[in-house]
């Protein structure tokens, strides 16, 4: 079943309207709705990869709000759920290729955890297409641009993520 757009205000419990990530105002004729994607990028590979995409002036969407983390192994699954609760339409985790982690095994551990998370998010009712993990090295600016572009397109097609009921 397709996800409905944001929960209608009247069906929300009192005091739970709204989300924290200030989104571009929806419904303005001059601007299309743009998804907000929170990206957790490891410092050593993916953050550098995103950086190289930038310095090479590759054109790619600007929807990803980047959170730099020391390693993909640093990403606590709660960060991901919290991002969705705070209004993210998608969450992207990106780290070094398996075998290339700066801390040698961080992303191997992360992979197990995030595999479970992926299945669990779907179990909780969050469309798995809104949550992705990729391995992007420091030299893969091109791949980064491609990952962002494809994820953006996919999430845009899905529309705004349903509200999960914050107090503010």
């Amino acid at each position: 079943m397709a996800e409905s757009a944001a929960t209608p205000a009247e069906s929300r419990p009192p005091g739970t309207a709204g989300t924290a990530v200030e989104k571009p105002p929806a419904g303005e004729e001059t601007r299309e709705w743009e998804p907000v994607i929170v990206g957790f990028l490891c410092n050593w590979c993916s953050y550098a990869g995103a950086d190289s995409a930038g310095t090479a002036r590759m054109v790619h969407p600007t929807n990803v709000r980047i959170v730099r983390v020391p390693c993909s192994g640093r990403v606590n699954p709660r960060f991901v759920l919290r991002a969705f609760q705070r209004g993210a339409d998608g969450v992207l985790i990106s780290g070094c290729h398996p075998g290339d982690c700066h801390y040698s095994t961080g992303n191997f551990y992360a992979r197990r955890r995030l595999l479970l998370l992926k299945g669990y998010l779907e179990y909780l009712g969050i469309d798995p297409r809104r949550f992705r993990t990729h391995w992007v090295s420091a030299s893969e600016g091109q791949k980064w641009a491609e990952v962002v572009r494809s994820m953006c397109e996919e999430v845009k097609a899905l529309g705004p993520a349903p509200s999960l009921g914050n107090l503010v």
Binding site: P13, G15, T16, P77, R78, L81, R82, Q85, Y120, L124, L164, G165, N166, L167
Partner: peptide, 10 residues
């Protein structure tokens, strides 16, 4: 709130 209850069980 619904979000915090979800977070708790998560």
């Amino acid at each position: 709130s619904p979000a915090e209850q979800q977070m708790f069980h998560f």
